[in-house]
Amino acid sequence: MKKLAILAAVALLAAGCQADSQRDRALVGGGLGAATGAAIGAATGHGAGAALAGAAIGGASGAIVGAATTPRNCVAYDRYGNPYRVACP
């Protein structure tokens, strides 16, 4: 259980890093989901199988959500023709 707590703490620290690329957000989301799923699976007391299943399900869903919520940046131009980034609608 101590290993899971350390893993969860490391995952939360990694989540604090702001990432705008889809791959980075998928990796952080997958790591957080896997850590959370493993912790919940271990907490249920059904053995290592539950922790592994929780980690797999949490990792996959975290990666999907992380990739899907990546903010898109579009380029707009001011009246002088200088480009700048704006959030896409």
Rank of each mutant, 00 (worst) to 15 (best):
residue 44 T to L: 14
residue 15 A to V: 08
residue 8 A to P: 00
residue 54 G to V: 06
residue 80 Y to I: 08
residue 6 I to H: 03
residue 61 S to H: 09
residue 51 A to I: 04
residue 63 A to K: 07
residue 11 A to K: 01
residue 74 C to N: 02
residue 28 V to Q: 10
residue 4 L to V: 11
residue 23 R to S: 14
residue 88 C to I: 03
residue 64 I to D: 06
residue 20 D to A: 12
residue 71 P to K: 02
residue 20 D to V: 13
residue 65 V to Y: 11
residue 19 A to C: 13
residue 24 D to Q: 14
residue 24 D to S: 15
residue 62 G to W: 01
residue 43 A to N: 04
residue 16 G to D: 05
residue 59 G to Q: 07
residue 50 A to V: 06
residue 54 G to M: 06
residue 44 T to A: 14
residue 79 R to C: 09
residue 30 G to N: 08
residue 60 A to L: 15
residue 17 C to L: 15
residue 19 A to Y: 09
residue 29 G to W: 00
residue 11 A to Q: 05
residue 56 A to P: 02
residue 9 A to P: 04
residue 5 A to K: 10
residue 54 G to A: 06
residue 15 A to C: 09
residue 68 A to I: 01
residue 48 A to V: 15
residue 84 Y to R: 01
residue 80 Y to H: 12
residue 36 T to A: 15
residue 37 G to P: 03
residue 12 L to K: 00
residue 74 C to A: 10
residue 87 A to M: 07
residue 16 G to E: 08
residue 85 R to K: 12
residue 23 R to H: 10
residue 27 L to C: 11
residue 42 A to P: 01
residue 54 G to Q: 04
residue 73 N to Q: 14
residue 15 A to Y: 11
residue 69 T to D: 10
residue 86 V to D: 00
residue 7 L to V: 14
residue 73 N to M: 14
residue 69 T to V: 11
residue 84 Y to K: 01
residue 37 G to L: 03
residue 10 V to S: 06
residue 34 A to L: 09
residue 34 A to Y: 03
residue 10 V to A: 13
residue 64 I to T: 10
residue 54 G to W: 03
residue 83 P to M: 02
residue 6 I to C: 08
residue 1 M to Y: 08
residue 26 A to V: 05
residue 19 A to N: 11
residue 21 S to I: 02
residue 63 A to F: 01
residue 71 P to N: 03
residue 39 A to L: 14
residue 39 A to T: 12
residue 20 D to T: 13
residue 38 A to F: 07
residue 49 G to N: 05
residue 5 A to W: 14
residue 6 I to T: 11
residue 68 A to K: 09
residue 32 L to E: 02
residue 19 A to I: 14
residue 77 Y to Q: 02
residue 18 Q to W: 14
residue 17 C to Q: 13
residue 84 Y to A: 01
